[in-house]
Amino acid sequence: MGRSGESGHLLVATNKRARHDYQILRTYEAGIVLVGTEVKSLRAGRVSLVDAFAQQGDREIMLHGLHIAEYGFGSWTNHQPRRIRKLLLRRVEIDRILERLREGGLTLVPLSLYFENGWAKVELGLAKGRRSFDKRQAIAEREANREIAREFSRRLKGRPRHQG
């Protein structure tokens, strides 16, 4: 079991823009080093992944730009909303990620933030930036797949194709 008797998966925030702007090559799960008031704000859902990104910092991976709003009932011990936070990964994974980032053209973006058995986790994506042409192509591909799925569903249900 995790902390405070919790179990399961509780999604706190997602970065929908990341999957639009980047082609995700590989995903990783990392823990985050947080202070108490940050955890309380996360549980209340007061977080934004919009400008967040991860990068190397002294052989570690650090999360920059993650906004966790100050806790409303916090005192002088409250946290800075946009402070740099250390990510917790195995040394082998860190070395592998940093090696890929050094190759160039790749970046590390947070895709979602959630609680897993009471522990705050972030899903990171090793990503390659998309140009506007690639974005349009991805949208067209997604629309075509939806249309194929609709037609398949219609035929399974024995309905004729929609005329119009």
Rank of each mutant, 00 (worst) to 15 (best):
33 V>T: 10
16 K>Y: 13
42 L>Q: 03
53 F>L: 08
116 E>I: 05
29 E>A: 09
124 L>Y: 02
112 S>V: 05
158 G>S: 01
49 L>N: 05
50 V>C: 11
122 V>Q: 00
87 L>D: 03
155 R>Y: 09
41 S>L: 06
63 L>C: 00
39 V>L: 05
142 R>P: 09
145 N>Y: 11
18 A>D: 03
144 A>D: 07
72 G>E: 14
87 L>C: 06
64 H>K: 14
115 F>W: 05
84 I>G: 08
97 I>N: 02
34 L>E: 04
17 R>G: 01
18 A>Q: 03
84 I>T: 14
122 V>S: 03
140 A>L: 15
103 E>G: 10
76 W>H: 15
131 R>C: 12
81 P>M: 05
84 I>A: 14
56 Q>H: 09
90 R>M: 02
17 R>C: 02
56 Q>R: 13
151 E>R: 14
105 G>K: 04
20 H>G: 10
12 V>Q: 04
11 L>C: 10
67 H>S: 12
106 L>D: 06
34 L>S: 00
70 E>K: 15
101 L>M: 08
98 L>A: 03
36 G>P: 05
106 L>S: 01
57 G>V: 13
123 E>F: 02
151 E>F: 10
80 Q>L: 14
65 G>E: 06
154 R>N: 05
16 K>T: 13
46 R>Y: 10
112 S>N: 11
46 R>I: 08
145 N>D: 13
50 V>P: 05
137 Q>C: 12
80 Q>G: 04
110 P>C: 07
136 R>Q: 11
60 E>W: 11
10 L>N: 07
161 R>L: 12
121 K>E: 00
163 Q>H: 12
108 L>W: 05
54 A>N: 05
4 S>R: 15
35 V>P: 00
62 M>W: 09
98 L>H: 02
32 I>T: 05
92 V>L: 11
3 R>D: 14
144 A>L: 14
84 I>D: 15
141 E>F: 11
64 H>M: 10
59 R>M: 12
101 L>W: 01
24 I>H: 00
21 D>Q: 12
14 T>P: 05
42 L>V: 07
94 I>P: 01
115 F>P: 00
100 R>M: 09
82 R>G: 07
84 I>R: 13
1 M>E: 12
9 H>W: 15
52 A>F: 06
5 G>E: 06
3 R>P: 04
115 F>Q: 01
60 E>S: 10
22 Y>L: 04
32 I>E: 04
129 G>E: 14
16 K>W: 09
8 G>V: 01
156 L>D: 10
3 R>C: 09
15 N>D: 04
38 E>D: 06
148 I>M: 11
91 R>E: 09
36 G>K: 08
132 S>T: 13
85 R>N: 06
115 F>K: 04
54 A>Q: 00
37 T>Q: 09
115 F>N: 03
50 V>H: 14
44 A>P: 04
75 S>D: 15
101 L>D: 02
78 N>A: 03
107 T>K: 07
128 K>P: 03
77 T>C: 10
147 E>Y: 10
144 A>Q: 10
138 A>L: 08
17 R>H: 11
2 G>T: 01
157 K>D: 12
24 I>Y: 00
39 V>H: 02
88 L>K: 00
